[in-house]
Simulated scan of single mutants.
Amino acid sequence: MKICHMTSVHPYNDIRITVKECSSLVEAGFEVHLIAPNTSVENFQGIKVHGLLNPYKGRFKRANFFTRKVYLKALELDADIYHFHDPELLKTGIMLKKQGKKVIYDVHEDVPRQILNKHWIPKPIRKVTSFAFEKYENNIVRKLDAIVTATPYIEDRFKKYNHNVINVSNFPILNELYIGDKQIGKENSVVYIGGITKERGSLVMVGAIEKTIGTLELAGKFVNENEKKILEILPSWETKVNYHGFLNREGIKNTLSRSKAGLVVLEPRLNFIDSLPIKMFEYMAAGIPVIASDFPVWKEIIEMNKCGICVDPLNVEEISKAIQWIFSNPQEATTMGENGRRAIETIYNWETESEKLIKLYEKLN
């Protein structure tokens, strides 16, 4: 079976699209092609990569012009199944269906809820934009062959519109990040890895670490440079924060191995509350405790597996106390890390999730 994955936004080596999904399909014996923007790489882990130059600046031009290039390349490849990963490719999916192709939509995020928090959309029109996009998305997914979702919450939403919906959670690859779960000998530091914004807890993390004996290992890109400037003038930035910028997977593994806990203290926003943030599971995979927002879905996972501490993500004092507790109780923290790792090995791992994806392809063949 010849399979073509398509993205107009993500890099050719995206973790979910390429390292996990496409690589798993190659291992299962499929011929896998990937259309991705702005890369000269032609082969990645057995995946045939087709890089397309995107000369357009801004979201509007990309969505209206570059997606046409993606469609034409997809047609040229003449695959058996097409699997796209970006909402702006919904029209491309329908065009491929009209050509008699089998098409899968991979929904990474709950986009209508995301729109409500997009800073680049003027606030007065966010609600109507969210409503209009949801109607558009729901109408198109009725006509596609299958929907793959990244969380059970998104899965439940789309089951009303398509009979062939499966959830494939973005859980960690079992052996990618694990070194060991002992706390003794590690630095008094906690880590956050991911996109850095106020909504994802940047201000409260820096504020909380100031009240402890340790440091914050901060890795990732700032979505807004103005927010970086706000953090840089805080007294604790120079003395208590080690900012690493963007790290590759080996850099992430090394940073996790030095840290005593991982932070995922996202604000209680609609698009976060029912999400399953990969960083939370990556901390568990690395064998370190999690300090996480007390959202019901997250709290159930953490308390059921006894692998961390849930906090009010808006309460700096509460986050600070949780961090200090980890530093002051190394044996208990080690047990939490071991529990989290055990949960990854038995439940929350990519190896288990990939089986669902392979079965879907076999079903569509």
Rank of each mutant, 00 (worst) to 15 (best):
W350M: 09
G46N: 12
P55M: 08
G93H: 14
V311I: 08
D156Y: 13
A146S: 14
E227R: 02
P313A: 08
V107C: 13
N224F: 09
K182V: 06
K91F: 04
V290M: 02
N349V: 07
N13A: 04
R59I: 04
I35W: 04
F272G: 05
I347T: 15
D181I: 00
C310Y: 03
D80V: 10
E362C: 01
L270S: 13
Y153P: 00
Y192K: 03
L247F: 02
W325K: 15
V141C: 12
P152I: 14
D110W: 11
A261H: 01
F133I: 11
P268N: 12
I147S: 08
V241F: 03
I209G: 06
G340Y: 01
M95Q: 11
I81T: 09
T212S: 00
S189W: 02
I213R: 15
K182T: 15
N188M: 08
T335I: 14
L203P: 06
I147P: 05
L52Y: 07
V190K: 03
C4D: 08
R269H: 01
K98P: 02
T334E: 05
N167Y: 01
T197S: 11
N339F: 09
R342K: 12
K97G: 14
S257Q: 12
P124M: 05
E250W: 02
E300G: 03
V32C: 06
T255C: 13
V141T: 00
F60I: 15
F158K: 06
I173K: 13
E225K: 14
V168Q: 13
I347V: 14
E267D: 12
A146V: 11
T215F: 09
F281R: 01
P87N: 06
M304K: 12
D181C: 07
N162H: 04
N13I: 15
M336K: 06
Y283K: 05
F246D: 08
E332D: 11
M280N: 06
F65S: 03
T255D: 06
L218W: 06
E31G: 08
A292F: 08
L53Q: 12
V103I: 14
F281Q: 04
G201L: 03
V148I: 14
W120T: 13
F65H: 08
R59M: 08
M336C: 04
I115Q: 07
I358M: 06
S236N: 04
Y136D: 02
V204Q: 13
G51C: 07
I17A: 14
K97I: 10
K260C: 02
G58S: 04
F60S: 10
M284S: 09
E338R: 10
V191Y: 01
V264P: 00
L266M: 10
M205I: 15
V168P: 12
I115A: 06
L177A: 07
T335D: 00
N271E: 10
E300W: 05
Y56F: 14
I319F: 05
K279G: 02
K135C: 13
